[in-house]
Nucleic acid binder design. Structure first.
Lengths: 185, 185
DNA sequence: TTAATCATGTAACACGTTACATGATTGC
DNA sequence: GCAATCATGTAACGTGTTACATGATTAA
């Protein structure tokens, strides 16, 4: 149930509308959790039913009306409990789910040239992601400066470092894999 | 829809019962895809409806009856198409989903000592996983020798190498993360 | 005698995706 | 004139999890 907790975490920084939450989510948490806009609205409804947040309708005349969400004490408690309860998510963190790796596993059924193409495409994605990291670091230090909270932004940096380390690992792996297949020819 | 394709891939090596498929899945594909037994049976039903496989009831008297699944030509075609169609799964492969990293992201809300505990637990899991790799390599060369198919087992090795590389990356990252937090104290 | 292995499933629920609907304002 | 931004949702569908049910054989 981590999507709800991610939203609670963002709302804990300050009240936001669904639209703003959606953007905030995609700009920060999307490195390790993805969610569609429609799902976010649905989860917010459910969280309000649970009493983790309240919402206030704001009428605008120049723009569409909006709904501002605010975390409640009960929501803060839930967030705190989730942060402390290891909840077995560390074991989960060891498991990846990847249709791409599944295709690699069964790649013996196709030609070596086709497998190589697939791996080269993966390599391109790794390189792109690695290039994208500097923008991510910039965004973090910018937000960190705005908030003036060094402690929080340290953890953001640590998650960015995770991304960087893993993209590098992906690149290293795929280069080895390509070398193995080219040796085989 | 990759669970179905994983099952097709296994059945392409030879006919199996649901029970055997479940075990085969957990022994090989579970490194990059997880599925519960109950889901596997449900998917097999659906795949039969689609004509990708046929099943044959086998009556046993000493043991429970079983159902043997066999891939059809249409199933082989589907498997082949899936292998070749990149299907955007390479882009997906760049996205991880991790409740654990989400907790790290919001760890500014808890004490540094608690965050360190969480990271140390992750480090333990990395070390365990790294230790487990030699067993995985053993299993692959064993199966490879049985099948006598070098080409197939090369790809299995490549996926194992992926696991190894990523567990190492996890360890490297967490050590850096722990160092950052300890410096902060 | 207790746990593991063999072997199959159903039902309910939770979570995630896709497709669709609406419509004004602002910047290029 | 066209794309992007603002802003909210519903309905249907697809995928994954949990809890439960059944019951014999075999090895420690």
């Amino acid at each position: 149930m981590s999507l709800k907790h991610g939203l609670l975490g963002l709302l804990n920084y300050g009240s936001m509308t669904g639209y703003e939450l959606d953007k905030a989510f995609k700009n920060s948490l999307s490195f390790f959790w993805q969610a569609k806009t429609s799902q976010i609205y649905r989860e917010l409804d459910d969280m309000e039913r649970r009493g983790w947040l309240t919402s206030e309708r704001i009428i605008q005349n120049e723009k569409p009306n909006k709904r501002l969400y605010t975390i409640t004490d009960s929501g803060k408690e839930e967030l705190g409990n989730w942060l402390l309860s290891s909840e077995s998510d560390i074991a989960d963190a060891m498991h990846l789910k990847s249709a791409f790796l599944m295709r690699v596993f069964f790649a013996g059924e196709m030609g070596t040239e086709q497998s190589l193409e697939m791996l080269r495409a993966y390599r391109e994605k790794c390189l792109e992601s690695i290039k994208g990291m500097s923008a991510a670091y910039d965004a973090i230090s910018e937000y960190g400066a705005v908030l003036g909270d060094n402690r929080k932004s340290k953890y953001w940096e640590i998650t960015a470092l995770h991304g960087e380390t893993f993209y590098d690992a992906g690149l290293k792996w795929v280069n080895k894999a390509i070398a193995i297949l080219e040796d085989m020819k």
